[in-house]
Design a protein around this nucleic acid. Structure first.
Lengths: 365, 365
DNA sequence: TTGAAAGCGCTAACAT
DNA sequence: ATGTTAGCGCTTTCAA
């Protein structure tokens, strides 16, 4: 009702309030300052007057003198990737709960762009969360010296990190598949720059002997549905009855590709993904996956960041590792020993029968 | 290599540069100021020295005196909704292209939270994009007086708006279904607060007579997969052979719900969604949908906002309307007149046969 | 062009 | 508990 003009209205300042309340500007400032909001009678009166005038403390000005902008930055490799939807939600909630605003930068998977985003955001924020960063360890460490910073989905020595339990996740996937009678598993790799990819593949190699199964690897592929389709073609050259994909998108694409080549999931090949993104339970068959606590990842990263901002020392040097869990859906099944016919793997999508099946029969190894 | 300490490194200021270059601070400022970057020899030397020192102009300080923070705000109703992934990407790109940083606020579908976010962001940004706002028209208009603002997916009188062509989209959906022989269509409504929902339903009502078909409406339902499942139950009480859902999530949930009740899509019921979100082509059957130019929506909103920021007058009072297109996939098909048996609609998921079929036979209307 | 000085709105020592 | 006085880092008159 206070009939603002039309263009850009000028907001009242601390001086306006001071004058209206008949006190010194600094007194007004105090009535609004952070820690121990003064509670004298005057302070209250000042707040009333301020509210009346529609006064709002200008965060820019405040930030200029205190370096507290009440803003944190979240830089993400690919905002389009459904994984980040939940992560961002979690981050946003944690930030908002602490009274912080979130600056978002999408780097579209580009390293240089990421560096630039970080530089741009740096002076505006009190701290930064780097999700699935593609920058080099040293670049990250460098940035971490400027402002509090935590990396998500990656462990960087000397920099607070939040990761999921990739080794355990990969192991669970392998155990699950092994338990279903699969003896050789193909790992469909994601981007080489991905830290998680390395962890997953390495973990699989490690459990290989222990679980008495064989693990191959194809890739790298872009971590997208399309990448998965390509992977399916690649897989058809050396079919295995079970596949673990770097992430759900890849797994979903793989299933599509397999379907288009006449392979059935899970009858012919069992597929496991990672992350449990939106949609992984909607595809047919539902995707068995190693679920990550997406939202918790976001909140944890932000909470830790805020702790740092609040002056906490970088805790231990250890990364915080969040648990994952195996979600069994319809894309994995008992290995069928009675393969009626090598219906796929004997032909590729781009032509008639050519490379004949290998490793397709039981006693492969 | 410039061996930063360890804690928070202090950045060089304009004064440091001035001293190093042997000029006055204001001269340094000029060498970096906005419009016509001075090109004198000194200016160049200053820039070199600055680069050498690792100087970066502090946006906060700049913002304090110029009110140009090079930041825009994007406030979104539900960051978790896949629709926004692409919109955000588009917005982010447009912002980055113009050298702007993006502040993001997720309001989790809460009106009050949205108001608060806007207030919080207001002083930090040069302008705001409100995506699918749940605030009242008057609240939006109020905010629009403070700073440049554009609303996305909603038209508000006197406020620059960007919307998709809902009427045309709804019409196309109806025509498509009509062309397949469907005579009565159920519209599964989304949230009542949604402007788009109103537009879509209203458009359907308008083409009803013209296309010679009948349109019913059930709902409102939350615009989620779960909401869709609930809608399926509701639908089973008054089955129709064709359904148009408020959005893809609802449509997908509906398909799941129908499947669990024994109804086949598209044989028993054809389903059309809106938006073409990630995943709508991954479900089985693929979802026929009215595709929105998601990314373009984001870029358009931001570009228009930036134009306003740059001083453009609110153009005409008209909303920018972006075209949609019908994407036919497998969830819609010719209506089968020879219904062998009313296999669904006669039983509900929660028990044996009860409510008998209605409107299920051919000559319904 | 460049320099000098005032000020953006707020906070942070000092005093009182 | 309040008032005074300097800045935070940058831009912007106004002179030179």
């Amino acid at each position: 009702m206070r009939g603002y003009g039309h263009g850009v209205a000028k907001l009242p300042t601390i001086y306006d309030v001071a004058e209206a309340a008949g006190v010194a500007p600094s007194t007004v400032s105090r009535a609004f300052s952070r820690p121990g909001r003064v509670n004298s009678e005057t302070a209250q009166r000042i707040r009333d007057v301020a509210a009346d005038l529609g006064y709002r403390t200008n965060p820019l000005a405040r930030g200029l003198s205190t370096a507290r902008t009440m803003t944190i930055g979240l830089v993400i490799a690919d905002i389009t990737n459904p994984v980040y939807a939940e992560i961002m939600r979690g981050a946003q909630i944690a930030a908002a709960d602490a009274g912080y605003t979130m600056l978002l930068a999408d780097t579209q998977g580009s390293g240089p762009r990421e560096r630039e985003s970080v530089e741009r955001a740096m002076p505006l924020v009190e701290g930064i969360v780097l999700a699935s960063s593609r920058m080099s360890d040293s670049a990250i460490r460098m940035a971490a010296k400027q402002k509090p910073l935590v990396v998500l989905n990656r462990a960087v020595v000397d920099v607070p990190s939040v990761v999921t339990d990739n080794p355990r996740g990969a192991r669970r996937a392998a155990e699950h598949l092994g338990g279903l009678g699969h003896e050789v598993i193909t790992y469909v790799a994601g981007p080489e720059a991905s830290w998680a990819d390395g962890m997953r593949w390495r973990a699989l190699r490690e459990v290989e002997l222990e679980l008495g199964l064989k693990v191959r690897r194809i890739g790298p592929f872009p971590p997208t549905v399309r990448g998965g389709v390509r992977a399916a073609h690649e897989l058809s050259k050396h079919p295995t009855s079970a596949v673990i994909a770097y992430n759900d998108q890849l797994a979903i694409g793989l299933m599509r590709g397999l379907a288009s080549m006449g392979a059935r999931v899970p009858e012919d090949v069992s597929v496991v993904g990672f992350d449990n993104i939106f949609g992984s339970d909607l595809v047919t068959p539902g995707l068995t996956t190693i679920a990550a606590p997406l939202r918790v990842q976001g909140t944890t990263a932000v909470k830790n960041l805020l702790a740092l901002v609040g002056g906490a020392s970088s805790t231990t040097g250890k990364a915080v590792v969040l648990p994952t869990r195996l979600l069994v859906r319809a894309s994995t099944a008992q290995r069928s020993r009675k393969r009626t016919a090598p219906t796929w793997g004997t032909t590729t999508v781009s032509g008639p029968a050519s490379k004949s099946a290998r490793r397709t029969s039981a006693g492969a190894r």
